[in-house]
Design a protein around this nucleic acid. Structure first.
Lengths: 217, 217
DNA sequence: ACCGGCGCTGAGAGTCCCCTGAGAGCGCCT
DNA sequence: AGGCGCTCTCAGGGGACTCTCAGCGCCGGT
C-alpha cells in the first residue's frame, strides 16, 4: 500500500513516515500544497494524508482540486484546526475523513485501514447533470449558472434524480427515498416534478411513461 | 436517503431523528442491538448510525456481524467511549467512521454525507443481442446504434426476449412473465411482437412456429 | 395441390397514466 | 392575528398505451 503524506512540519512528517513504514506502508512525503497536489494526481497512491495548513496552497484547495479533476484517491485530512466548521468544510470539499491534532497514532492507523478497505469509487460531492448543479452541503442549485430557489422537498426530489442520472428513477423509488413510504399516492411525485419543471425549465426533467423520470436529454 | 439510527437513549434518538429528518433524511430508529442488526440487514438503508452501548448486543458486535454476513452498508459508530483503542476497535470491526459523544451535529452531517458519497448504486446489466442494445437503467434501446422509442409493454417483451437470447421464448412464458397470467389470449403477444418488429426491423425477431419467438440470428 | 391451423395485422374502443389548477391544512415569521 | 411559504389532496382533461376482434396470409402435412 502506497501512502502520500503531505505535511510541511519536518518533525511530524518524519514521525508519520517512520510509523507508517513500520506498519508496512510505502510512504512518500510532499512538503507543500502544490507539490502534494501534483504527487496525488500522478503518483498512483492508495491513500493521501493531507495537512490543512500548507505553504503555497491549503489542504482544502488541494482536495477540492483533486475532486474537481476526477481524482478519487481516499483523502484523510489532518489539521490543528478543531473548529466544527473547519472539519465539516474539509469533508464537504471531498475529504473522506478528518483528524484533529493532536491525534493518536493508533486511531490514525485504524482510520487509514477503514478508508483503504472501502471501494475507491466515491461520487463527487457536488451533483451535476443536464446543466443542473446541486451542492448537498450548501443546498445550492444552479441551472446553466443561474440560481434556482427550491423548497426542501423539491430539493430532495432533484437530488435523487441527479444522483441517478442518466438512469430513470421510478416514482415508487422516489416515494420510498424521499417520502419514506413506497405505498403513498404517486400523484404527489407528479406534482413535485411539476414544481421542479416550472423552476428549472420544462425540458430539464423528462417523463418516461410507465417507468418514471429522468434528468435532461 | 434512508438512515437507520440504532440508539437506546430516548432523548438522543429523538434528537437525531428530528435533526436528520430536517436535513431531508428518512429516518428509522431501533432501540437495541438485536433489532438494530435485523433492521440493518433487511431494511435497505443507505447508512446506519450505530451507538456502541446498546441493550442486548453491543454496537461492535452488530457491525462485526453485519460485515461477516457480507452486508456493506456504511456504518457510522457513535460512542461515549473516547479511548483511542475503543475507536480503533470500532473501525477495525468494520465501521466506516467513529464519532465520540458529545459531538457536533454539523460534523455528524458532514461525515454522513462523506459516507453516502462513497458507494454508487449498482446498475443492472445491459442486455445485448442481434444488434439490439437495451439498458434497463436508462431505459434506452438502440438498434445498430439508432435509438428506438418503445412503450412500456413493448420494452418488457423485448427485455425478456433479449435476456433469453439466443433461446426461443414461448408465448406462454411471455404471457406469464410480462402479463402475469399464462392463461391469457396468446394473440396479445403476437400483437406486441408485431409492434416491436415495426420499430426494430422485421427480421430482428424470428418466429419459431409452434414454439415461440427468438432474437435475430 | 389442398386444407387446417397458426400467426400476422389494421382498426377501434377503452383504460390508465400523467399533468395541472385550485385549494385546504400547517407551521413560521412578522 | 395575519400573511406567507410549503406540502399535499383532489378532480378534470388529454393523450398515449393496451387490448380485443375479425379477417387474411402463409406454413406444413397429407
Amino acid at each position: 500500500m502506497r501512502v502520500l503524506v503531505v505535511e510541511d512540519e519536518r518533525g511530524m512528517a518524519e514521525a508519520l513516515r517512520r510509523g507508517l513504514a513500520a506498519e508496512g506502508f510505502v510512504v512518500e512525503v510532499a512538503r507543500d500544497g502544490p507539490s502534494g497536489l501534483d504527487a496525488a494526481r500522478f503518483g498512483g497512491f492508495d491513500a493521501v494524508l493531507l495537512d490543512v495548513m500548507l505553504p503555497g496552497m491549503s489542504g482544502y484547495t488541494v482536495v477540492r482540486t483533486l475532486r474537481a479533476e476526477g481524482v478519487w484517491v481516499p483523502v484523510l485530512m489532518v489539521s490543528a484546526k478543531d473548529g466544527e466548521y473547519d472539519e465539516a468544510d474539509g469533508l464537504d470539499y471531498g475529504a473522506d475523513d478528518y483528524l484533529t491534532k493532536p491525534f493518536s497514532f493508533v486511531v490514525l492507523l485504524a482510520r487509514l485501514r477503514a478508508l483503504l478497505r472501502r471501494d475507491p469509487a466515491p461520487r463527487p460531492a457536488v451533483l451535476q447533470a443536464g446543466g443542473i448543479r446541486l451542492d448537498p452541503a450548501t443546498r445550492e442549485v444552479t441551472v446553466d449558472g443561474g440560481r434556482a430557489d427550491l423548497a426542501p422537498r423539491e430539493f430532495l426530489v432533484l437530488q435523487h434524480l441527479l444522483a441517478a442520472a442518466p438512469a430513470v428513477v421510478a416514482k415508487e423509488t422516489l416515494l420510498s427515498q424521499v417520502w419514506g413510504d413506497a405505498s403513498d399516492d404517486p400523484n404527489v411525485v407528479e406534482v413535485y416534478v411539476g414544481y421542479l419543471r416550472r423552476k428549472l425549465g420544462r425540458e430539464r426533467i423528462e417523463t418516461v411513461r410507465g417507468a418514471g423520470y429522468r434528468i435532461g436529454p
